[in-house]
């Protein structure tokens, strides 16, 4: 188990290193000089040079890469070109919107999908299965930002149960903040729940065909007991994979949903920074998101091992 964890950890570090290189390279080849962008096209050459020196843009690329990575490890994400404030502060504020939103949506998605998938699998081929699967088929096809608009139309504009957008902030109390995240979380969660329910169902159906399920039935377990005691844990392996991927999708999907609801999250930060050519912010936010995804994948790998003893023994 220790060796498995160590190996996964090693691959996590390698992935992060390569990802940071790729992001850095993409930003490097981006056309345009941040300094001239910030000062306007009429800026004098010596002012530009001074600013470049201040931003560290005159140093060799590898040095800037190392400085960037080294800084991030100490929580220093650089200084925004646009606002001249530490990027870490800007991110920290926004993270308190995006991360709770993603977790909220993930929780909703799981709470809907697991029972739906288990129900459909246990009713395989019957009316219950067919209707749940039909609903998920439509759920998968719905673009979440469109769904968000419809939710706003119904629950904010017509019914006035929620506000149409904006974020109260956590200072106003957890309840109010959660309420302003509810519609966005539902918009994000439902299409994902549809996917997760389908995966849950097919993973369970695959397990139902396994020989050991027949052994379990031969012991005297009922169909439902066998499914619960022997099926679920074996079906968790593909489901965990999808859960991990969904987290990354929810973080990213949040970027678009934040646009619909005018939420001050990482998504809005990234869009504002792109239009302001504040590339250091873009770079760092992207890296942060990649870091989150890779870390979640690492946790999923650890969860595999917790579920499956064969993995603990191997490699």
């Amino acid at each position: 188990m220790l060796r498995y964890t160590f190996k996964r950890l090693l691959s996590l570090i390698v992935s992060l290193a390569i990802a940071s290189l790729v992001i850095f390279a993409v930003i490097e080849v981006a056309p345009g000089d941040p300094a001239s962008f910030m000062l306007g096209i009429n800026a004098a050459e010596d002012t530009l040079a001074a600013l470049r020196a201040e931003l560290g843009l005159d140093q060799p690329k590898w040095q800037r890469y190392l400085a960037w990575v080294g800084g991030m490890m100490q929580g220093d994400f650089g200084t925004s070109y646009q606002y001249r404030t530490p990027v870490s502060e800007m991110i920290a504020d926004r993270l308190w919107v995006s991360l709770p939103l993603a977790l909220y949506a993930l929780t909703l998605s799981t709470l809907i999908a697991f029972p739906a998938g288990i129900y459909a699998a246990s009713r395989r081929g019957k009316a219950g299965d067919v209707s749940v699967m039909g609903a998920t088929q439509i759920g998968v096809a719905i673009p979440n930002f469109w769904f968000a608009m419809i939710l706003v139309l119904i629950f904010a504009i017509n019914l006035r149960w929620f506000s149409a957008g904006g974020f109260t902030g956590w200072d106003e109390g957890v309840w109010a903040a959660m309420k302003s995240l509810t519609l966005p979380a539902i918009a994000l969660a439902l299409p994902q729940a549809a996917i997760l329910a389908r995966v849950m169902r097919s993973a369970l159906l695959d397990v139902l065909d396994e020989d050991f399920m027949r052994t379990a039935r031969a012991k005297g377990l009922s169909r439902a007991q066998a499914l619960r005691r022997h099926g679920l844990r074996n079906a968790m392996i593909p489901v965990l994979t999808i859960l991990g991927l969904q987290f990354s999708f929810l973080l990213a999907g949040g970027i678009i949903i934040e646009q619909v609801f005018y939420l001050p999250g990482l998504g809005r930060l990234i869009f504002q920074s792109i239009s302001a050519r504040d590339l250091i912010v873009v770079e760092s936010v992207t890296m942060l998101l990649v870091f989150a995804v890779i870390t979640v994948n690492f946790l999923v790998d650890l969860a595999y091992a917790a579920v499956d003893p064969r993995l603990r023994a191997r490699t």
């Binding site: 396994e210 020989d211 050991f212 027949r214 052994t215 379990a216 039935r217 031969a218 012991k219 005297g220 377990l221 009922s222 169909r223 022997h230 844990r233 074996n234 579920v307 499956d308 003893p309 064969r310």
Partner: peptide, 28 residues
């Protein structure tokens, strides 16, 4: 009925299968 059969299977009658590699739950 199925419930009664469940009380008989494993108690009154046991079964051994062909493929020992897959007949056991790998995670228990």
């Amino acid at each position: 009925d199925e419930a009664t059969l469940c009380t008989l299977r494993g108690d009154l009658v046991g079964m051994v299968f062909q493929e020992p590699m897959t007949a056991l739950n790998p995670v228990q």
